[in-house]
Design a protein around this nucleic acid. Structure first.
Ligand SMILES: [Mn+2]
Ligand SMILES: [Mn+2]
Ligand SMILES: [Zn+2]
Ligand SMILES: [Zn+2]
Lengths: 151, 151
DNA sequence: TCTGATATTGATAATGAATCTCTTTATTAT
DNA sequence: ATAATAAAGAGATTCATTATCAATATCAGA
């Protein structure tokens, strides 16, 4: 089956994926593009959520393919893995820069934020220990504004 | 089997555990105290590591008991769960306050640190979003001083 | 356009960490 | 010491994720 034409809004991400595939002698498949398209429509999504979304479709796409493709998206920088709860969530970072998260433990709402001052302080702490930071993870857990105050 | 007398150095932790057991109508067992003793000797330990350490001993202690007891230690504030890699690590926080971690992705070394300024900035960000923080997780990944520069 | 080499898929088996079940054993209040 | 029952240990079970492998799709080259 030939890959169908991409919607205008996700052309750039499709291009990034195809570029990555070309550079690694991997093939363009309809499954990979459909999964990317679905991934871009959702926020902080799990493999299961994408699988569930795609079960409506024909032809049916297997769960293993979802996992394989999500890992592929991580490799080409479109996605990043996050471990908020028990399952692994995949975060769309294609046209968002680096950011961190606040997670409401009551309703599950995820708020994104970025704070340069915190990152500078992290670098300062690392320098003191002669540690060289490549990535970091900052997660704030608690209650969002609507849940705070409720039983 | 009666619980054997605790070494002087961990008397305080044993006392905390026994206090918690008493308050919850749980029983003092030799397994619980041996696991606590082993836990306190190691840093950022996994259930498997404790299990491996204790297989040398008689009587044999089951893996399920290790998991059950480590969860117990979390409940009475002696331990805290961390998710550095794929497995869950248990951190001794009995006579350390809250702290965060730098993890060397090359040799696995874990450096502990605390930084009030970062925590203040976290509160500030949260306030801006009307978010109420209960806990947080800050992990810096990269290379430690000995690994940095090596191939 | 057709073909062959081979990358990919999907169904399913396998894995591994963590938990649950259930019978036996240990603890503790009386 | 005894009875009530909490806990241990062995092993089954769960659940997310990865591996296996035969069938299929892709794509460079004829
Ligand atoms: Mn995000
Ligand atoms: Mn620590
Ligand atoms: Zn909420
Ligand atoms: Zn190192």
């Amino acid at each position: 089956m030939a890959a169908r034409p991409a919607k205008k809004s996700i052309r750039n991400e499709i291009a990034i994926l195809r570029e990555h595939l070309a550079q690694h002698e991997l093939r363009v498949t309809s499954q990979r593009e459909i999964i990317l398209e679905t991934f871009l429509k959702m926020e902080h999504v799990t493999a299961e959520q994408i699988y569930h979304e795609l079960t409506k479709r024909t032809p049916h796409i297997g769960l293993a393919t979802i996992y394989r493709t999500l890992n592929l998206l991580c490799e080409c920088g479109l996605a990043q893995q996050r471990h908020f709860g028990t399952q692994t969530h995949f975060d769309n970072v294609s046209h968002k820069g680096h950011h961190d998260h606040m997670i409401c433990t009551q309703c599950g709402t995820i708020i994104e934020f970025e704070n340069c001052d915190i990152e500078k302080l992290q670098e300062e702490v690392a320098r003191r220990h002669k540690f060289h930071i490549t990535t970091h993870k900052l997660e704030l857990y608690g209650q969002c504004s609507t849940c705070h105050g409720k039983a």
